[in-house]
Amino acid sequence: MPVLSMKGVTHLYNKGTPSQSKAIDNINLDIEEGELVGIIGHTGSGKSTLVQHFNGILKPESGKIFVDGTDIWSSKKATREARFKVGLCFQYPEYQLFEETVYKDISFGPKNMGLNEEEIQKRVLLAAKYVGLQQELLEKSPFDLSGGEKRRAAIAGVIAMQPKVLILDEPTAGLDPVGRDKILDMIKAYREKTGSTVLLVSHSMEDVAKIATKVLVMNDAHIEMYGTVDEVYSHSEKLREIGLNIPQVSKVFEILNKKGLNLGSAYTVEKAAELILSKGGAAV
């Protein structure tokens, strides 16, 4: 049974006004447990709208959403359960920090779940460890942290709820390359350790290629493609058509292949190096 599922979901913005528009249109989607799905698409393609349906932040105009097989809009209780089962971390999550200390802020989610002090403490410390926040930072005011630390503290606030599914909307936006890699490594490690399903919204094909097991391409309120990284990235023509750029290294490989080097395809620098070392020598 898929952990997340959508049946014919449509969402309208500005309903009933002249600027009414379909943000997502008749979406059918199943996401299996344990996957790390990269969701890509250009600005305005409906990625963020899509993920905000999974925990009931947005209510669809029509269609049904299932988390763990339960229709999340069937009852008030089901909606609230979906909030905790699906942890959603918004874009620029550092703007949601509000408590006096980082520790208190991370414990906001677990507290809302009605857990006891002991359990809360356990979860906060574990979440801080996952995102790589040092113990001494926990007693600081969140407003005294650096940009990257704030971002990780906010993500910890969602992880501390120990959701079955973690959704991150553009977690690397506005970070420098080091901060970016830190977050991506953290997501990868988190998934490997907990075995939970992760959805990563991004417009960077490079980021997605680095860590995703599956890729979902959104275009103009529809799902354009959904499959493994290799399947999706092999359609480079189609991707370019809808305004997405395949990773730089893949472009280089495409050109090399055209020149008759037959190296196969690579989407990350590491994979490329590996391929060149193993096949490259023979081909040249």
Partner: peptide, 13 residues
């Protein structure tokens, strides 16, 4: 709107 949604996602009632 954005902040409300972010806190709702953390279970704020």
């Amino acid at each position: 709107d954005r902040i409300t949604n972010a806190q709702k996602a953390r279970g704020a009632n």
